[in-house]
């Protein structure tokens, strides 16, 4: 299923796509994760990536970051093949190696987003400090700058990670499950911060989520990954019973509750683990 539903959300459609995937196959060893994925993302779009566990949501990010290569098909990021260390992409992984009782200040981590890839002895930290301060301000985390990471709440930590990804002024953000472990209020607050970045800076943003509901009002597009394939389009087109049933090849129901929240029944693997 491809880009069948152009829509108007202030996104300019005359520019080259930020991401274009054409019949991409990929997997680990001999196990395919994507058997045939075709989709595209335009610059400045806010995209939710959802789907059952193990469908290949994190795989998508690994492909875009150039950490993993497709088996076949073509994948382009800003018109070029993905490469590791692309400064145009900011990334927030699902897990961080950071020690839970690390007393390193939030600002020190954010600053590494600017300086961490530079070798040798650094003599002018002033520019990195300024870049870190700008990134912290952009996510509303200036008051957290001096606090140790160990004292931050889950929502505060996600803001710091977002600032770390933002510090080089990337044109694309890849956020892997930033909302998991946040209660609904904190999740909505974080989505608001991300949405403001998308609107103010035109950053193309892909956000992997388990639950679409905190996001649904801000989204330009949904990429739904299941069954080795990908469906993409505006939420109203993709998140329907017929569209998802076609993707899975089995009946899937999309239900709406009284507040407009979506529930997808039949698609999720109830015994699935946490790996996306």
């Amino acid at each position: 299923m491809t880009e069948a539903f152009p829509h108007a959300t202030g996104v300019r459609s005359d520019r080259a796509p930020a991401i274009s995937a054409d019949h991409v196959r990929v997997g680990y060893r001999s196990d395919p994760v994507w058997t045939d994925a075709t989709f595209s993302v335009r610059p400045g779009e806010f995209v939710a990536v959802i789907g059952p566990n193990g469908a290949g949501k994190t795989t998508m990010f690994r492909l875009l970051l150039g950490i993993q290569r497709p088996w076949s098909g073509s994948l382009r990021v800003f018109g070029a093949a993905p490469r590791r260390g692309n400064p145009r992409i900011g990334y927030v992984p699902q897990r961080h190696t950071i020690d839970a009782d690390s007393h390193v200040a939030a600002e020190a981590l954010v600053r590494l987003g600017a300086s961490g890839a530079r070798w040798g002895v650094g003599l002018s930290p002033a520019r990195d400090r300024a870049a870190a301060a700008r990134a912290l301000e952009a996510v509303g985390a200036t008051p957290l700058a001096g606090k140790p990471l160990s004292t931050l709440s889950g929502g505060e930590l996600q803001r710091i990670f977002l600032a770390e990804a933002l510090v080089g002024d990337p044109e694309m953000l890849l956020l892997d499950e930033p909302l998991s472990n946040l209660d609904i209020r904190r999740a909505r607050e974080l989505v608001e911060v991300v949405h403001e970045l998308v609107l103010a800076r035109g950053v193309t943003t892909l956000l992997v989520a388990h639950d679409i509901n905190p996001l649904i009002e801000c989204l330009d597009k949904v990429i739904y990954i299941a069954n080795g394939r990908v469906a993409s389009g505006p939420p109203s087109e993709v998140l329907t019973s017929p569209a998802l049933s076609a993707l899975y090849g089995a009946p899937v129901e999309v239900l709406h509750d009284s507040r407009g929240n979506l529930v997808i029944v039949g698609g999720e693997d109830p015994h699935g683990g946490e790996n996306g």
């Binding site: 970051l65 992409i89 990334y91 190696t97 390193v104 890839a117 070798w119």
Partner: peptide, 23 residues
């Protein structure tokens, strides 16, 4: 250690991001 200081610190604190940055 002085030569690899910042990349090593980055990889020690936040390995996945450091890897994506090409370290």
């Amino acid at each position: 250690l002085a030569l690899v200081y910042r990349p090593l610190l980055f990889a020690s604190l936040d390995e996945d991001v450091a890897e994506a940055k090409g370290l």
